[in-house]
């Protein structure tokens, strides 16, 4: 029962979020701010994670390929590319972002709620859900794909670096593998997923924060909820989209 209550309220919130903005210029300014706070500030963690992820994938695949003598060495590059582009970059990085961005958004909105800042907006006649959440959603939908593309590149680089420096694979073979039977649609598919994930992460964690009741303790609780629920939602939608697009 509770679930339906939350789904209903989530839907009502989205209706408010996508109401016509009072003033586009202010929303635009907010969007630019959010791009910075959601996207630019996440570049570091995404970069580090991607390089290490790529490296580990490369080592593991090289280990497997080594054992199976019938597999060509360029399979290392090929496998690394497939897994990074199809799954690791879009899904794993988005899960990490759900943790970082989701908890940030939820605690920001939760604090604004319990200190009556959201009420203050409402009293001025501002559509608070729209003003606070819409720019975040647009910013994330815009910036997440760039983060993911960067992650793909760095992941592949991490694999190349570790593969070549440990001697597991030669630079030529790895790069040949990366290019082997490349389907550009896979990138499109990954970016479609990313856009959905961006929407879900921001809207679910904003929902958790926006409807916080109580005090500082509850702000903490809603930011935990934001991470848990948006991660679960990302995994569910991932399954759904994968089946729909590739299935």
């Amino acid at each position: 029962m509770e679930l339906f209550y939350h789904l209903g309220r989530y839907y009502m919130m989205l209706k408010l979020v996508f109401k016509r903005p009072e003033k586009w210029s202010i929303y635009l300014r907010q969007i630019i701010r959010e791009i910075d706070s959601i996207g630019i500030s996440s570049i570091g963690i995404v970069a580090i994670l991607s390089v290490f992820m790529g490296a580990v994938i490369c080592i593991q695949t090289a280990f497997g390929v080594d054992g199976a003598a019938w597999m060509p060495l360029y399979a290392v590059g090929f496998t690394a590319r497939e897994s990074i582009i199809l799954e690791f970059s879009p899904t794993i990085i988005c899960l990490i972002l759900a943790g970082k961005v989701g908890s940030h958004i939820s605690s920001e909105l939760g604090t604004m709620r319990v200190t009556e800042q959201i009420d203050a907006l409402e009293i001025m006649g501002v559509n608070s859900a729209g003003y606070l959440i819409f720019p975040k959603i647009i910013a994330a939908i815009f910036i997440f794909p760039f983060l993911i593309i960067m992650s793909m590149g760095l992941g592949l680089f991490g694999g190349w670096f570790i593969g070549v420096s440990t001697g597991a694979v030669t630079s030529y073979e790895y790069i040949y593998g990366i290019q082997y039977d490349f389907q550009p649609f896979n990138v499109t598919y990954a970016l479609i997923k990313t856009v959905f994930f961006a929407f879900i992460i921001i809207s679910v964690s904003a929902y958790c924060g926006y409807y916080t009741k109580g005090g500082a303790l509850e702000v903490g609780k809603s930011s935990t909820k934001a991470v848990v629920y948006s991660s679960i939602a990302v995994l569910l939608v991932n399954l759904l989209l994968t089946q729909l697009i590739l299935g």
């Binding site: 604090t111 604004m112 200190t115 009556e116 800042q117 009420d119 203050a120 009293i123």
Partner: peptide, 10 residues
């Protein structure tokens, strides 16, 4: 409206 706790945008 002025709120009891101020409610300034921090």
């Amino acid at each position: 409206m002025m709120f009891q706790g101020g409610a300034l945008f921090d």
